[in-house]
């Protein structure tokens, strides 16, 4: 696969219970671009990301993947789109009843691959990309948080998607593992040329991996620009987030 795809979100609204999480998000991601979405915890970043792969349905608005609106598609109709898009969940979401090798092989097995030799080779390659080749027999419960995320990333890339979505890839990891994940995302983007959308509030990640940055605030895209634009922004609300200021008195 690996032909980059474009993603466009138009007027996306989402209400959960009585809370309006998204209030008209408009965002366009170019093919092959790495878009980083930043925003405060609980601000709707993960909700937005889940809409991009049809895991959540919008209250209103459109989500266009390669020009096709997926907002109204049923669960089974979404299958074709989902095969083009990989996702790294915040906690990895590895299948805990399967070992690492089987987790990574899962997309291949489900797409009908049966040649054990080919599957083994592809699993080994995918795990090699995340520096975990040789860990095939380990169970997810015996892996550290960083390893789980890397295995999940190997699972996301094994079927060579055209787009990868990352949900807080460095959350809860130490700075060194975070740096290795950031480098990995950058390496994958260069090597596979895929469209990447990363949700994070880790500014180190932003400066390391982003082509463009979108700041989600109060359910809307408040700022959209390059990393350089973000650095030079004089907007106080953007500066507060970038510099990590709460505005509260000591």
């Amino acid at each position: 696969m690996n032909t980059s795809i474009s993603i466009e979100v138009r007027g996306l609204h989402k209400t959960l219970g009585s809370q309006q999480v998204l209030r008209g998000v408009d965002l366009s991601v170019n093919p092959g671009e790495t878009m980083v979405i930043i925003g405060r915890s609980g601000g709707g970043k993960s909700v937005l990301l889940k809409h991009l792969i049809g895991l959540m349905r919008p209250t209103s608005g459109e989500i266009l993947i390669e020009g096709q609106n997926i907002a109204g598609l049923g669960e089974r109709q979404l299958g074709a789109i989902r095969k083009k898009v990989g996702i790294l969940f915040q906690n990895g979401a590895l299948f805990d009843s399967m070992n690492v090798g089987r987790n990574v092989a899962f997309p291949l097995l489900e797409s009908g691959a049966r040649n054990a030799g080919v599957i083994r080779k592809k699993v080994s390659e995918a795990l090699g990309v995340v520096d975990l080749d040789g860990q095939q027999e380990k169970m997810p419960v015996n892996l550290s948080g960083g390893m789980r995320k890397r295995v999940a990333l190997a699972r996301a890339i094994i079927s060579e998607p055209s787009c990868i979505l990352y949900d807080e890839p460095t959350a809860g990891l130490d700075p060194i593992v975070s740096d290795s994940i950031n480098r990995l995302i950058r390496r994958l983007q260069r090597r596979l040329g895929v469209t990447s959308i990363v949700v994070t509030h880790d500014m180190n990640s932003v400066f390391h991996i982003a082509d463009r940055v979108a700041y989600l605030l109060d359910g809307r895209i408040y700022f959209l620009g390059s990393v350089e634009d973000l650095r030079q922004s004089a907007d106080p609300r953007v500066r507060d987030f970038v510099e990590g200021r709460s505005g509260e008195a000591e």
Partner: peptide
């Protein structure tokens, strides 16, 4: 239920498996 609350079911759906 455990698969649901640990996002494993979302992972299945994301991998185009109903």
């Amino acid at each position: 239920g455990t698969m649901k609350v640990t996002e494993q079911i979302d992972a299945l759906r994301a991998l185009a498996v109903h």
